[in-house]
Design a protein around this nucleic acid. Sequence first.
DNA 1: ACTATAATGGCACTCGGTGCAGAAAAACAC
DNA 2: GTGTTTTTCTGCACCGAGTGCCATTATAGT
Lengths: 206, 206
Amino acid sequence: MTPSDAPAPLTQTGQPGRRPVTSRAQISAVAIDLFTANGFEETSVDDVADAAGIARRTLFRYYPSKNAIAWGDFDGHLDAMRALLTDIPPTEPIAEALRRALISFNRVPPAELAGHRRRMTLLLGVPALQAHSMLMYAEWRQVVAEFCAQRLGLSDDDHLPQTIAWMCLGTALAAYDQWLADPATDLETLIITGSRTLAEGVSALS
Amino acid sequence: MTPSDAPAPLTQTGQPGRRPVTSRAQISAVAIDLFTANGFEETSVDDVADAAGIARRTLFRYYPSKNAIAWGDFDGHLDAMRALLTDIPPTEPIAEALRRALISFNRVPPAELAGHRRRMTLLLGVPALQAHSMLMYAEWRQVVAEFCAQRLGLSDDDHLPQTIAWMCLGTALAAYDQWLADPATDLETLIITGSRTLAEGVSALS
DNA sequence: ACTATAATGGCACTCGGTGCAGAAAAACAC
DNA sequence: GTGTTTTTCTGCACCGAGTGCCATTATAGT
């Protein structure tokens, strides 16, 4: 969740060599415009390259695939999530820590909210992107699993941390689905509600 | 989880027209052999078609994509999951119902265990298949969500049923990952362990 | 033998993605 | 300014997945 665009591949001033003509962020923005307006499948990579003012071949040097364009800079946000979790004091119970991290991670400035919504509509709505997102989520889950493992004195790839990471992902994505389906809802409220189920479990329901 | 091969597109005897020369199940079996032996990316669709003794064009009439071949007949198993859930008596608490369904759904006859393992190794290990699987999981989640919604007197697409469905999926997949990583583990035991976290929540851990 | 039906198979085409080699821009040295 | 080095951009040829179209082949029934 919460991908977006950041600086990324910008050559330092003072370095030799030709300057990049554009940026990953700009390409992603242009592409999302096209995808939203004309549909993802209906928009070819050439269309995006043309709109971005670069050659097709160049586009594939900024992004490894058409799917990846829609995500923009995700690695940057992964680092943010990692920082968020490590900054939480060890006194905080693990369920509360995850709840707070989920909320902070998915908070977006009001100015970016509309754009964020458009992007997430694509990522969670277009089948090809739903599928591709699985690969992004895997990295995100790993970050959560590392935190849980550390807290529980286990290894990253142990069963329990991985299970919790999956559940956190589910909590976030279920909230996003609701939020996208109904613009009147508040994403943060949904995440808080979901975190309750995450913390208290399914047996607390019946 | 737990895909496999079933009859699927077999023309009824007594019908006019040419008989199918093979079956979805057979194609999937042949393909998994190739994928496992030579790698998924390294194996072309033509390779699979040749090994199955049919034309490339014909292969795409059995399966809509290369990715789908690895899954075999999933819809059949979806129906099984649906039946499993509806057969559980309403007196059973929801957490217990989900636990039992997860266990039954993922139980495989010992004779098929080795093949199942090979298939799941591909599905959960190859990036392209991990991604594609997301689309299968979506249908599976929907089945679980429908059950939860009915139990809780809510709509299929309400927040809570969808959240629970996501968590169930996570429980199953985390168990599978562990099982594949270490052949000595028992899948059912892992699912039972995961179901505990699902039922009791994360706050029960610290 | 003739007809209707359903599956197979070949061909050409689109599109996503890659390897390669050369052109273009920028910094620096002289 | 000329030349060198570094980095990016671009065009081209190529591969593999997936599709539309149409002819071909096999089966059942008359």
